[in-house]
């Protein structure tokens, strides 16, 4: 499995570049043009991340994060989710940048190869911001009665947290 994992990125890079060349595209210029867009994204997310990292840092510094974690820890234990990952579970349906901030905090404090670090990685790699997506998509077409959208999506998120914890325990334990 590890060998396959190591193959994914190189294969993606080669396939994209070679396919581009076969289609007679100036791959280098095209890459540069796209990479500039990365810079735009960077300037867009820096202020947002600053705001959220300050808030998460304050929560950790003041001990507020520990307080929240303690409150929710019985539920987490019941579902098999490592308690260190709880802050990520709470913020991930609400804010994408918030998730990055909390995810980084978990990696810094527990290490990327700890159980908590790995569960957080799997969750961060397999979820989208439920509430943001819902708001943008329905907002754009003026729909206010979303019926069972949010319950379905949030239940899926909860399943994601449980499954991610379970998979990490099976794969890496």
């Amino acid at each position: 499995m590890e060998k396959i994992s190591n193959l994914i990125l190189p294969v993606i890079v080669v396939v994209i570049v070679v396919f581009g060349a076969v289609k007679k595209i100036n791959v280098f210029d095209c890459f540069i043009e796209g990479a500039k867009k990365g810079l735009v994204t960077f300037t867009n997310i820096l202020p947002v991340l600053t705001a959220l990292i300050v808030a998460v840092g304050m929560m950790r510094g003041s001990g507020g994060l520990d307080l929240i974690t303690k409150i929710f820890s019985p539920i987490a234990k019941l579902l098999g989710i490592p308690i260190q990952v709880l802050p990520l579970c709470i913020i991930s349906p609400i804010s994408g940048s918030g998730s990055i901030a909390v995810f980084e905090d978990i990696l810094r404090n527990y290490g990327p190869d700890s159980i908590a670090g790995r569960v957080a990685s799997v969750i961060a790699g397999s979820s989208e911001t439920t509430l943001y997506t819902t708001t943008v998509y329905y907002g754009s077409v003026g729909i206010t009665r979303t019926r069972h959208t949010i319950p379905s999506a949030l239940i899926a998120d909860l399943v994601n947290f449980v499954i991610s914890s379970l998979i990490v325990k099976i794969t890496f334990a």
Binding site: I16, I25, A35, G38, T41
Partner: peptide
Amino acid sequence: LCLWSGLMNIAEKS
């Protein structure tokens, strides 16, 4: 971010 945006630009244009 730049690397990925660059690659995806190729993927889109091609």
